[in-house]
Write a protein that binds this DNA or RNA. Structure first.
Length: 898
DNA sequence: CCCCACCCGTAC
DNA sequence: GACGTACGGGTGGGGT
């Protein structure tokens, strides 16, 4: 009977067969690597197994055993032992080191014995542990270990959750555990080159062992073996059988240099584990780690020197010139294009970090006159040969531009560099990067609120804020080299150097220039829409029979579905949906006046609240709107725009176009618009090398008609409107990973016909199908997708167990190379355009980028030249298998330029 | 008064 | 869930 006395805590020794699991994990998990290209499949499988075993098995003591020159001893018995094992695969070799690191951070005690296998180490520890009264659990998937099973010694296979004890062995194999050695010797092991006795398989082996007990008895009583064939075989292979049994027998008497007390389990080193898992990109496993205790505060610098006199600023400028490298974090308030520079945190490769107070408001604080700062620093800041670092160099560029300084030499923008390494990441905030990359907590910046509670930044004394900014500069400077190493390793460095960093000052210039808004014109539209919205709201109330908040979806749902008893066609997370698709159906198919009225109300109030009411308030004193472009925001490499977002100004509806009429050129100027035609579809043709699609673009056909002709088996001239509409939808959806369901709801056709259309599309455009499949397959294998120019997006969710998540990731993987390459092309076009404008000495400026469109403001005299220049630059930015078509137009307003 | 999730809608 | 990438407004619930 088991000891049930409560006084004695269970002492369980867990023994882990590391070597066995490494190979199992390697073969069980498809090739996988980090974004840096480090192979990790075996490490991941091994780590998962390890964590699972520790999670599921009670353990007071733990040891992990590795092979060490493991063939030496057994090859003394048989030189061919394991001789036909294939060499370790090249992508497994480098993973051993990381496995050791995992074991190390988990604080597991490694036990190994030179010349012996992990099997023997575990056999020895199991025997000693059992003798000392431990309960033993052996974590392994190897059947050889059955031989050490006994009362109190069990096997656990974390890959299938199987526990093997004495009873299980008897049931599964029909033998006692101690007979396993004899059993294995009889049936042999081809993989390890352990000879078998020919003609004997598992069945016969079990029979023989049941009758005779072990190999010695069997051989001594050979004449009792009934079947002559078996008897002869045993007689003929007597020697090899005994040798085989020697080979498979664990040595449980190794002189291990470890005491059982040394194996006491210790908590993992959570912080180091976190770092290692982050490095290996085992993000799902991070959750399994114990949370970190209080964040460790590691001040990066001990001293911040305050630069408060003109001489000191001059000395600083000299130091920057000597170092050839400076990292700057500005303290400012307001929007960057029109902000006051309050101070500057500065870090140099050598020496203390500095803070230069410029516009602190407190009386009597020592600070530098802004003019003195500018005159001293301008030469070094404008010198492209002096490398600049920071976090969001575009903001710095804008701030310095306001001071009359044109920042050049920007290179180490850690936000931008971090983005290129992982564009899916939501934020690249400096404190987060410092925590991850430097294991340092940045001090909080002073609370700055414009409201009643906080004070403006300038109201804080320099010594309150200076160190915080200086430390940030120090942190940014220190993480830059490693970022570049990672970029080099991922082949992203040239993208950073030749595309993103040169684009940065161009974006700054666009933001600074802004686009003129005709506020009175907008006000006219607004007044008209205002009364329309009110009328529509009244119509909604009338249709409902009472007043309610038309803008409230819950209230609307109540009216539609509870009061009017209309059918619920779609549900969201929190209730029945009231989106446009649903309302259209309710209006058309159920004759709902209210639904129709809501649709009209919605479209107008959207325009009113988002654009008409908002845009005028964002007009700066110069009468222009200064958006902010985000270069480190999207997962595909596109830019985004905010405050306001000028990339979603309406264009499709009449009222929407009127809003574009309020975006105007200065007197004597025109807006010039140049946009890529069908750029994503053209890129799809090029990247997928689809002959049909390429042919269509080479002949500049109406691509939707051509697709309709292909899909419906008619000539392009025979295509009717409906067929073209279907084809157009397919063309748009194809790069988004469209589904029969999605297409059917969008087209209002059945899922079957949608499926049929898609199938016929892929039959005609076989290259596209192949490309889409290959893209997903490769993404699964390498863990990322990339554009023609090497921009990468990490794609972890492809392996999600949640099917929906995995499928969404597949669609994203399909889309990214297309959307991302289009973004790359546009960025290169912007560089080319800016260069050409300067070369030709034109005064035209680039104002806006809307993914596939560039908007310029050109003096009247330059309009035609700019139209030609833009078309030329944009279409010649890459030589593809299809031409890049560019449409250009010009006019007084954005609407007129189209 | 701020923050957030949610729904919805605008762009490409 | 249901076709990719964004930003942002309103509501309504929660918190300070």
């Amino acid at each position: 009977m088991a000891d049930t006395s409560p006084q004695r805590p269970a002492r369980t020794l867990v023994l882990i067969d590391a070597s066995g699991f490494i190979f199992r994990a390697y073969h069980a998990i498809p090739p996988l690597s980090t974004s840096k290209g480090v192979p990790t499949n075996a490490v991941l499988g091994f780590t998962r197994m390890l964590l699972k075993a520790l999670r599921e098995l009670p353990h007071s003591h733990v040891a992990i055993a590795f092979d060490k020159d493991s063939r030496v001893e057994r090859q003394k018995i048989d030189p061919t032992y394991k001789a036909n094992r294939e060499a370790t695969p090249p992508d497994l070799l480098p993973q051993f080191e990381h496995i050791r690191r995992v074991v190390d951070v988990l604080n597991l005690r490694v036990v190994e014995a030179s010349g012996w296998e992990a099997d023997d180490v575990i056999g020895t520890l199991a025997r000693r542990g059992r003798e000392a009264g431990f309960d033993i659990k052996v974590v392994t998937g190897d059947k050889d270990f059955v031989q050490i099973v006994q009362d109190g010694v069990r096997l656990f296979d974390p890959m299938n959750d199987r526990i093997t004890d004495t009873a299980a062995v008897k049931e599964r194999l029909g033998i006692e555990p101690r007979q396993m050695r004899d059993y294995l010797a009889l049936i042999g092991d081809a993989v390890d080159n352990v000879a078998k006795v020919p003609g004997i398989g598992p069945k016969t082996a079990t029979e023989l062992l049941t009758q005779f007990g072990d190999v010695e008895t069997l051989l001594s009583r050979l004449d009792e073996v009934k079947k002559p064939k078996i008897r002869e075989a045993l007689g003929a292979h007597r020697e090899s059988l005994l040798r085989a049994r020697q080979l498979v027998t664990f040595n449980t008497e190794l002189p291990l240099d470890v005491a059982l007390d040394d194996l006491v389990w210790r908590e993992p080193d959570a912080r180091r584990a976190r770092d290692l898992f982050t490095e290996l990109e085992f993000f799902a496993l991070l959750r399994d780690l114990p949370q970190e205790e209080a964040p460790q505060v590691a001040p990066l610098v001990t001293t911040t020197t305050f630069v408060t006199t003109e001489d000191e600023v001059k000395a600083l400028a000299d130091a920057v010139r000597v170092a050839g490298d400076v990292t700057l974090i500005p303290a400012f308030e307001g929007m960057p294009f029109a902000a006051a520079l309050v101070g500057m945190g500065v870090s140099l490769p050598e020496g203390a970090t500095r803070y230069v107070p410029l516009r602190h408001q407190q009386l009597g604080v020592a600070q530098v006159r802004p003019e003195a700062f500018v005159s001293a620093m301008k030469p070094v800041l404008e010198d492209a040969a002096i490398k600049k670092g920071g976090h969001d160099l575009k903001a710095l560029t804008l701030l310095l531009a306001t001071e009359g300084i044109a920042l050049r030499g920007g290179q180490d923008d850690v936000e931008l560099l971090s983005y290129l390494l992982n564009p899916s990441r939501r934020e690249h905030a400096l404190p987060d990067l410092a925590r991850e990359r430097l294991r340092a907590e940045l001090p909080a910046l002073p609370a700055v609120t414009e409201g009643r509670k906080g004070r403006a930044l300038a109201d804080h004394a320099p010594d309150e804020v200076g160190a915080a900014y200086a430390v940030r500069a120090d942190a940014a400077r220190r993480m830059a080299p490693e970022l570049w190493r990672e970029l080099e390793a991922a082949n992203l460095a040239s993208l950073a150097r030749s595309m993103e960093l040169p684009l940065l000052p161009i974006l700054a210039k666009m933001e600074r220039r802004g686009v003129k808004l005709d506020v009175p014109e907008l006000a006219l539209i607004s007044a008209r829409v205002d009364s329309e919205v009110t009328a529509r709201e009244k119509a909604c109330h009338a249709a409902a029979g009472h007043e309610f908040n038309v803008g409230s979806n819950p209230q609307l749902a109540q009216v539609l579905y509870e009061e009017k008893k209309l059918p619920i066609l779609k549900r969201g997370k929190t209730g029945p949906s009231t989106d446009q698709e649903v309302l259209e159906k309710l209006a058309d198919e159920h004759g709902s006046e209210l639904a129709r009225a809501i649709i009209e109300y919605r479209s107008l109030s959207k325009l009113k609240s988002t654009y008409l009411d908002t845009l005028p308030s964002l007009v700066a004193r110069d009468g222009r709107i200064h958006t902010t472009y985000h270069q480190a925001a999207t997962a595909t490499g596109r830019l985004s725009s905010s405050d306001p977002n000028l990339q979603n100004i309406p264009v499709r509806t009449e009222v929407g176009r009127e809003i574009r009429r309020a975006f105007v050129a200065e007197p004597g100027h025109q807006l010039v618009s140049a946009d890529y035609s069908q750029v994503e579809l053209r890129l799809l043709a090029h990247i997928a090398e689809d002959p049909v699609l390429i042919d269509a673009f080479l002949h500049d056909e109406d691509i939707h008609s051509r697709t309709a002709a292909e899909v419906f088996g008619v000539t392009p001239a025979q295509v009717d409107r409906e067929q073209r509409r279907v084809a157009k939808m397919v063309n748009f959806g194809i790069a988004y990973g469209l589904s029969p369901h999605g297409l059917s709801t969008r087209l209002g056709i059945s899922q079957e016909s949608a499926r049929d259309v898609i199938e016929r599309y892929f039959t005609r455009y076989a290259g596209i199908r192949r490309y889409l499949l290959e893209t997903v397959e490769k993404a699964r294998k390498v863990g990322y997708v990339e554009t023609l120019y090497g921009r990468r997006r990490l794609m972890g969710d492809l392996h999600s167990k949640n099917r929906g998540v995995a499928q969404a990731a597949e669609r994203a993987a399909i889309n990214m190379p297309i959307q991302g390459t289009a973004a790359d092309l546009m960025k290169m076009a912007m560089l080319a355009v800016e260069d050409a404008l300067r070369q030709e000495g034109l005064r035209t400026t680039l104002l806006l980028q809307v993914h596939d469109e560039l908007l310029f403001e050109a003096p009247d005299a330059e309009v035609e030249a700019v139209k030609a220049l833009a078309a030329r630059c944009m279409s010649s930015v890459a030589q593809l298998k299809v031409p890049l078509k560019v449409d250009v137009g010009a006019g007084r307003s954005w609407a007129d330029a189209h």
